[in-house]
Design a protein around this nucleic acid. Sequence first.
DNA 1: ATAATAACGAGACGTATAGTATCGTAATGA
DNA 2: TCATTACGATACTATACGTCTCGTTATTAT
Lengths: 198, 198
Amino acid sequence: MRSNESGAPSTGRPRSEEAHKAILDATLDLLVEVGFSALTVEGVASRAGVGKATIYRRWPSKLPLVVEAFGQLPGFEDVDTGDLAKDLKRMLRGYLELFNSTPLSAVLPSLAGERSHNPELSELFEPVSKGRRQPLMRALQRAVERGELSRGLDLELSADLVVGPIAVALFFKGGRLDPSMVDPMVDLALTGLRDVPA
Amino acid sequence: MRSNESGAPSTGRPRSEEAHKAILDATLDLLVEVGFSALTVEGVASRAGVGKATIYRRWPSKLPLVVEAFGQLPGFEDVDTGDLAKDLKRMLRGYLELFNSTPLSAVLPSLAGERSHNPELSELFEPVSKGRRQPLMRALQRAVERGELSRGLDLELSADLVVGPIAVALFFKGGRLDPSMVDPMVDLALTGLRDVPA
DNA sequence: ATAATAACGAGACGTATAGTATCGTAATGA
DNA sequence: TCATTACGATACTATACGTCTCGTTATTAT
């Protein structure tokens, strides 16, 4: 019973890539249509035209499946205009537009909410979450290299500050995410509240 | 079959305040012990020593119950030192300490996650969420009146910026919320990223 | 070829829990 | 005293997770 590195055996019928993709697609479709909490594995199986076992053979439970489907959605697109404010505004605006055209705005809070009770999910989610921040971190890094930002700046904290208002809107307000909120948001994060002559 | 304004009839056996409180207390206890997703209505009924019907007579489903129990937890404590940075730091520090001593850090993401698929819950959550921000908003308002902040400042957005990094940590990172993160957070929000001489 | 192996779709199955309905009883107001 | 409603308890229906077994099909080893 030899196995290759991915844990799949080297003999017997191979797993169907087709079924794999159909499952992920069906999961995203249903996330859009019914949302996370109403999404059922049986529904995914039926939509994808596969048996439940075919799903559970690949993912130990519903959550990792949703995490992987979610991971296929796009994140920040990298923008490099040579000006930090422009970079941030374009990236965040594009991101908010994704929220209105994909299930991102519904899936993100659901998964984040589950994390707090599910350490395994938390671990699955971590690299995905981190990877999505990368373009943002790179834009900040470039600004430091250009001298636009101070060298001593905590870039992690800075990134949190920049996207913070989006997170607040997403989780604590109706979730209405108008791309027009981006410009004042970025401006305020760059200049700070205390932008008044003493 | 006359009813008073709260929907309860004016005749027959009145609803037990004792049972009401026991249910809310049991809900909070169980939120601490087992977390939100493992919390069951049957468990709450059993812990509170009431029948399930007594719960469903008051709350249409599990979520509004949890929202109301959650609403009993304390929020920001009002701090007025005459200095915005001090006010914010003390308030946020106290808030983060709440996260480590109550189920707040687990319940908040869960409820926020459910909101995106549940408009009714969203409406229930709205006033609670808004009320919790009040001390923060007042501190900002005072700073404007003292001339510490500019009059034209968007205070809603400012509040989002200040608490944003906490939201990001809570939802996108492990949820580790060390009160020591507060001081640099507030300082950065006040001065902005671009705090470097041009 | 033929055997061994493992994935396939379908769906039965056991368990858990949400929410409803029904019991006999207790408390209140007319 | 009687109507009304809440009470705790519990049976009930419906749903969905995750496991398992069916007969079948695709692939590899001999």
